[in-house]
Design a binder for these strands. Structure first.
Lengths: 342, 342
DNA sequence: AGTTAGCACTCTAAAACATCGAGTGCTAAA
DNA sequence: TTTAGCACTCGATGTTTTAGAGTGCTAACT
């Protein structure tokens, strides 16, 4: 689509004014915002053309214009100028992230929180996860006479714990044997391979201990399964409540969608780089009234997880993209360092 | 306050019809709900009396009646019949709780979730916590070459972990020394005693290792502090969005309140047994339009933490109380067993 | 004396209608 | 090609009307 410079400037002004005010913008307002002198009538003619091209729309005949999905698309692709976060903003984010730097789970919680606060939308992040990851270590910690905690560390950087309970007193001896056996058999194995069948087999090699420690084995299975699926951390849903665009039943639909972690994961992991999905582009009916900005983060140069912002279509995309890319970069770096240190 | 049997029955019907329908109830509707034959005119006379006693109110002259705060109070204190959860409901709750039985944190998350689902309100629970609790064990688990996790188990049943990072490679040796020293010095100590000063002193006795492991000491301090404060788990806030009584700005106020964990903790821990705070009774202006039902749970017979439901004043109190008491009982039993096993 | 039918009265919610004004599209002149 | 001018459109806002649910009171009834 080829637009004259003037049309582009007018479209840009229209999008930005609308994003700022939330109300359809009229020719007069645009007139005043342009950096060259032109009458409102001229602007009206141009607006009429832009409407015909499907870049702008009118709620009704005598209202101002607002960007259509295509309009936003064009804006994002061609008109938006990349903005950077202010030093202040970066400082705040950095200090927030640093406080949870060495625990990938907590790190991603912090990321979601920061992103939600920055954009005043819902923010999601997935842990690195992935079935391809490999078990790096299995550790046991006794937590009381008859309970202990299994800690599973994967090559994807996740660290999961689970507490289990036995019907007899746990001794350091037992844990040690258990630890040795499990590390021998499990370290280096792909997470997806930890199936009930495998655990069954493992039980066999443990002999009579297997019966005693069946709850421990279940815990290992559980925790492996949990590590395998990239889990998602959602924050700031309540921000959406205060967007006028979700008045009434609209909130329900989107909150419903957000409450389904599998769907969220699928959405987040389906592309690469930074993507902006406007309205129907996400192909999720529940998100037809929303936009999603997704950015993948990489660990040691390989795609690992993703972070995303979900909010109304009316967004300051420049700002959101700046924020999300900064965060994706930071997370990538931090997790890379964390894993490189191995 | 002494009411004739008939007045009591009428008040009961009024409360229950209003709770069910959400609309002011008229004399006709009450008429039909009563188990003895009486005309609407008679009911009207009684209603008039009940209004004068301040138990019912009218939104405007020609509307039906709805319970005032005092009306609900009377209902809860004298009219409500204790209901029990259905077998089905108990089954669902039990299985949900069992899945996280041995980790107090997860258990309380499950409790909040169950309670929120059951009541369609916001639900909160506090972990046993308490400054009086004593450190039972400090454990270390290496999680990568330069990171490790500290696990702190308190006598209150809490178990907290924190990952820390060192600038040199951690060896099992180092962790062992560290483990020994810390257990020697810290086990049996009251959580509230773990101050920066104490840690400082501890560092001295570690000699040169203290410098290497300063981040580990910080982590211990951190995790002790976190264990000391009973932390709260809030779930189901979004349920409140769908209550008609919180239309508009009302949501904001209550969500604000719910987002302040210290205030929530204070509210939950301020009494004993099961308490029903209706409207202003909570003495929190942000909750004047809400009711809170709180139940303490006990570990080994001693008050430990609390769980609560926060929602609109228009509540099926019988149901909420049944649910919360069942859950408080279950949690108490489970945690008692868990700690008794020591 | 307590209960009830009957009725006038009250007050809101919903519908119908009137008005205002922002913003458009078109026309004709510059 | 641009712009001033103007008739026109259509939602937002405010006002009036109407309908109906529910009350309180009175007077008759048991």
């Amino acid at each position: 689509m080829d637009l004259s410079i003037r049309k582009q400037k007018i479209l840009k002004a229209a999008v930005e004014l609308y994003v700022q005010s939330g109300m359809p913008v009229g020719s007069r307002a645009i007139c005043e915002a342009l950096d060259f002198p032109v009458s409102s009538a001229t602007v009206r003619n141009e607006l009429s053309d832009l409407s015909e091209l499907g870049l702008l729309e009118q709620p009704h005949t005598s209202a101002g214009r607002l960007p259509s999905a295509r309009g936003y698309r064009f804006y994002v692709d061609h008109l938006m100028k990349k903005r950077l976060l202010s030093g202040e903003e970066r400082r705040v984010i950095d200090s927030l992230l640093l406080s949870s730097a060495y625990d990938p789970e907590k790190l991603l919680t912090s990321v979601s929180k920061a992103l939600a606060a920055l954009t005043r939308c819902a923010a999601v992040s997935t842990t690195p996860g992935g079935n391809a990851a490999v078990i790096r270590a299995v550790q046991f910690v006794q937590t009381s006479r008859r309970t202990a905690m299994v800690v599973l560390i994967s090559s994807a950087g996740t660290m999961k714990t689970r507490v289990f309970h036995c019907d007899f007193d746990i001794t350091p001896e037992i844990l040690r044997v258990f630890f040795r056996t499990l590390n021998e058999k499990l370290v280096g194995r792909v997470l997806a391979d930890i199936t009930p069948a495998l655990i069954q087999g493992l039980a066999a090699s443990l002999g009579e201990m297997a019966i005693l420690m069946s709850s421990a084995l279940m815990a290992v299975l559980d925790v492996a399964r949990e590590s395998a699926e990239a889990d998602v951390c959602l924050m700031g849903e309540s921000n959406l409540l205060f967007c006028p665009e979700y008045e009434g039943s609209g909130v329900r639909r989107i909150l419903d969608f957000l409450s389904r972690p599998e769907e969220l994961t699928r959405l987040l992991l389906e592309g690469t780089g930074t993507r902006v999905l406007i309205g129907r582009e996400s192909r999720r009916p529940e998100l037809y009234a929303s936009s999603v900005v997704i950015s993948r983060y990489a660990i040691a140069g390989r795609d690992a997880g993703a972070i995303a912002v979900i909010g109304p279509i009316r967004q300051d995309y420049g700002r959101v993209i700046a924020g999300i890319e900064y965060l994706a970069g930071s997370v990538g770096t931090m997790l890379t360092e964390l894993l490189d240190a191995e």
